[in-house]
Amino acid sequence: MQTKVNEIASGVYRLSTFMPEVIPPEGFTFNQFLITGDEPLLFHTGPRRMFPLVREAVRRVIAPEKLRWIAFGHYEADECGAMNEWLAIAPHAEVAHGAVGCMVSLNDMADRAPRLLSDGEVIDLGGKRMRYIDTPHTPHGWDAGLMFEESTGTLLCGDLFTQHGDRPALVESDIVEPAIVAEDVSHYSALHPGMGSTIRGLAQMRPRTLALMHGPSFAGDCATALIELGNDYDRRVREALAA
């Protein structure tokens, strides 16, 4: 395995590891995002066993011990499995997450007390501003949340738009249909009536780049992509209720 590093927006780096043995035959990508600034932030840590790969990928951009913030979508191995490894090598790093995530998992599982973020709260990285957005149960997990980098308009999407295969770091082609196909195969979302409106609400920020955890990043009409994905989850809810 190797971890590729690509700058997908100014000061926003995608660290991507392709694992062909996961979800064969297409395989699956695991992506982390490093946002630079005076206080750099890593969104997703990757699984604990992937820590050496991610650490060396971060080293291509900044000294790993300078990492200041660790954030992620929800408590799950591929999102935060290596958080304590990062806390061990970065002496000033803090985990930052929403109230539910801190209450149900991180106050106990993180080796240093986490920073609790309110919905809409901003962390100023010095050159970058990260806004935290609560998205409970979307796509899954009571503690789910996303982050939006305001200066570049980059929405860190977590598991939203998950797709299979290995694609370029940044695309302008459709990401909605591949996400629909992946949902049909994996059924990874916690389907509920408010999911579509939550996803469509993200379009109001008018993001310019969508940074996917599992798949390529997207530069294009991001608002329309979010609206179409939200509409598809509404369709799924209607079909489930009618069954």
Rank of each mutant, 00 (worst) to 15 (best):
L155R: 03
N6Q: 12
R206E: 14
G196D: 00
L116V: 15
P24H: 04
I175G: 01
A113F: 13
R112K: 15
D143K: 04
G27I: 00
H140N: 14
A77V: 07
I70D: 05
R48A: 04
E150I: 04
T17V: 10
M103E: 15
G145K: 01
L41I: 10
G194W: 13
E239R: 11
D124T: 11
V100F: 03
G127N: 05
R235C: 07
R200C: 03
A57V: 05
E228A: 08
R55K: 15
M83V: 02
N84E: 06
P40K: 02
V237Q: 11
I227W: 02
M50D: 13
F72C: 01
E56Y: 10
A169P: 13
G201A: 09
E239V: 06
I62T: 03
I70P: 00
A223N: 12
E172N: 10
A211Y: 02
P178F: 07
I8C: 05
V176H: 10
T29Q: 10
N84F: 04
D143E: 12
E79D: 11
Q2E: 15
H140C: 14
L34A: 05
L15R: 01
V95D: 00
E149Q: 10
A243R: 14
T152P: 11
L146R: 13
R115P: 01
L210H: 00
M50T: 08
E149H: 05
I8L: 06
S10I: 09
V61T: 02
R238P: 11
C80G: 03
E121D: 07
D78F: 01
R112H: 09
F218Q: 02
T3V: 14
L226G: 04
D174Y: 09
Y132L: 12
L155H: 00
M83K: 10
G165M: 04
R131E: 12
S197A: 15
G98W: 02
T29M: 06
W142E: 11
D232T: 12
S197V: 13
M19Q: 13
T135C: 07
E85Y: 06
Q204Y: 08
A219L: 12
G46L: 02
L41V: 03
A57S: 06
Q204C: 06
M130D: 01
P193C: 03
F33Y: 10
P40G: 05
S189T: 05
R200Y: 09
A219K: 15
C157E: 02
E228R: 15
I89A: 07
V61L: 00
